[in-house]
Each structure stands twice: as C-alpha cells, then as structure tokens.
Design a protein around this nucleic acid. Structure first.
Lengths: 162, 162
DNA sequence: GTTTTTTCTGAACGTTTGTTCAGATAGCGT
DNA sequence: ACGCTATCTGAACAAACGTTCAGAAAAAAC
C-alpha cells in the first residue's frame, strides 16, 4: 500500500479514502479491467462470416492487451491473492470472454469451416497463445503491432481451419 | 518461510540449514526445475523427420509439465521475485529450452515442411499455448492426458505446416 | 471571507516477515 | 557408553506490513 501511495504521490493512509482495504482495491483493478475488455469486445463490429469473426477477435485481443500491459500483468499474476469469493467473480468474467471465442469456434464447426474436436479446449489454447504476446512484446521493438497481429492471426487461423 | 517449514513439519529456523536465505531457496527451486527440463529433453529420442521432432517436442512438453504443476506454477508466478542476477540466470535456462523448439522450426522451414515467417515468435506462441494446459488440466478430469496431447498436437502441427 | 466538506498527513497500532542463535535433541561411529 | 556431528527448537530481533485516526490542509459552497 505504501508503494502504491508513493507512486501516486500521497501517504498510505490517504488511499483508504478510496478503498476499504487492499483486497477490494485489487478486486476493483481486476474487475474494471475485465469489464472494459467485455465492453470493448461487445462494441466491436461483428462480421457474419465466421472466418472474419475469428480474425476480428484475434486482432482485437492482441491490440487490447498490448495497450494495457500493467492491467494484464495484474489480472494474471495476482489471481492467487484474491479471496475465494472474489476469485469466483473474476473467473466468471473471464469465462464470459472465453465464451465469445468458444461461440465463434462452434459456429465455425457448424459451418464446416473449422476442424476443432473440442472447442472449449481450443478456446483456452488460442487465448493462452494470444495472451503470451504480452510476455515479450514491447512497443518500439523488432516487430510492429500490425506485424505481430499478422503472425498470430496466421497461426490461429491455420490451427483451427479444416 | 514459516509456511514452508510447517509443510515439512519443522520450525522456520531449521530451514536455514539448507538454504542461506529465501531468495536462494527460490532460485534453487526454479533452477532445478529448468535443469530437469533440459536434461529430460536431451534424453528424449530425437527423430530425423522434422514433423516427428515437432510431435515429440509437443507431447513431451505437455507430459513433463503436467507431471509437475507446482514447479511450473512457481517457475512462472515467482519470476518477479527473483533478483536481477537470478532472473537473468533463469531466463538463460528458459532460453535454452526455447532454442530447441526454434531449431526444429528452422529445420522445418529449411525442409520446406513448415511455413513460419518468424521462428522466434512462433516458438514463443507454441510454448505459451502448450504451457497454458497447466492452468486447466487436472488428472482425473474430463480429458485424459493422451487426449490432451492429441488435441494440442493437432493444433500445433496445423499452425506451422505449409 | 467564512463555513462546510473533502482530502491528506503523520504518527501509531498490532501482526507478519526473514533471519539469527544459544541451547536442546537426535544420529552415528567407535 | 561416549563423544562428535548434524539437525532442530524456541525465543528473539528489526523491518515491513495493512490499517486506523485525530488533526492539518485544501477545495468547494455560500
């Protein structure tokens, strides 16, 4: 708490005008991150053809997450510090996001475009792969964001197509 | 330290007969995990055909990591608690492991079997996807380990083939 | 300009942390 | 049975932790 206060230029006690305790502060950070993610996803144009939907999802995921490295870092690394109740809340939100991708994969299978034996697992596999970008991508690095998008979209597409 | 000692049935002070301090203990856990990983990888049969090499790598990675959920968890979640020196050590070992996959991808491109524009990134993408298994896989769950291997091998193969 | 409300400080609290160490205990070779 | 070595206990230490609160300071309202 003292570190956080220092980073905002204030004494530790002042933080308690904004949060009842540390746990609630953490929950708030995670929850607002995931709610932003869900809102932004919903606000995204939703193409009809399943291949376009998957491409939109892939590129959006990379873009959104690479713009918020700190929030993403916290949302993954601090999961174990949530109380059981709060953990369930966060897992629920994350589940909603995963369901969006899973639904795309289901549609792709139904349309005969994708070959995915287990859409639930494929969802987790794709998201793990995409979120991995945050462990190495730095803006100003060797690859531009569009180049990264291109590489990953290529791999995601191939990994699920018929 | 008191929790660790308790889990071993001993007082906290007794741990200092085995480690000079907490940081060294953490480094030891991570280092031995990664050295085991490198040894076990090296001890693995190494097929000639690049497709077989990739399959062996994929299945081995899933098997090895699913057998050590705790070590894998620590090796990823505690990275930020390493001193800069120790972090460099661990990153070096991890880099060695990644290089093994990257070399396979390079061979695949050279052989005209794989279509991978950036083998370094593809390596990170594949490993992120495979390591993601540990976040959800539980032995005795819906899917057996061979089934998991099959699903992931399918996706990995397709994501890099020409 | 004064009052009222909001925000922050600075010190204090009880707990938990990593670590040390004198002494107790256990294990082993002889 | 004895001595030597390896191991563990239990208390203690300073530092860091999350949190509280009376009062100062700043901002807003009138």
């Amino acid at each position: 708490m003292r570190q956080i206060a220092g980073a905002v230029g204030v004494q530790a006690g002042a933080l308690y005008n904004y949060t009842p305790d540390k746990q609630t502060l953490l929950l708030g950070l995670m929850r607002s991150h995931l709610e932003e993610l869900l809102e932004a996803t919903a606000a995204q144009p939703n193409p009809k053809r399943v291949m376009d939907r998957l491409e939109a999802f892939t590129r959006f995921h990379i873009r959104f997450h690479s713009e918020r490295p700190d929030a993403v870092f916290i949302a993954y690394m601090e999961l174990r510090n949530l109380s059981p109740d709060n953990f369930a809340t966060i897992e629920g939100l994350r589940g909603q996001y995963e369901n969006m991708l899973e639904e795309i994969l289901h549609q792709g299978v139904a349309d005969g475009v994708f070959d995915v034996p287990d859409p639930k697992i494929a969802t987790l596999a794709v998201i793990a792969m995409l979120t991995g970008v945050n462990t190495w991508y730095r803006s100003g690095g060797r690859l531009s964001l569009p180049e990264v998008e291109e590489i990953y979209w290529d791999m995601v597409r191939k990994s699920v197509v018929r």
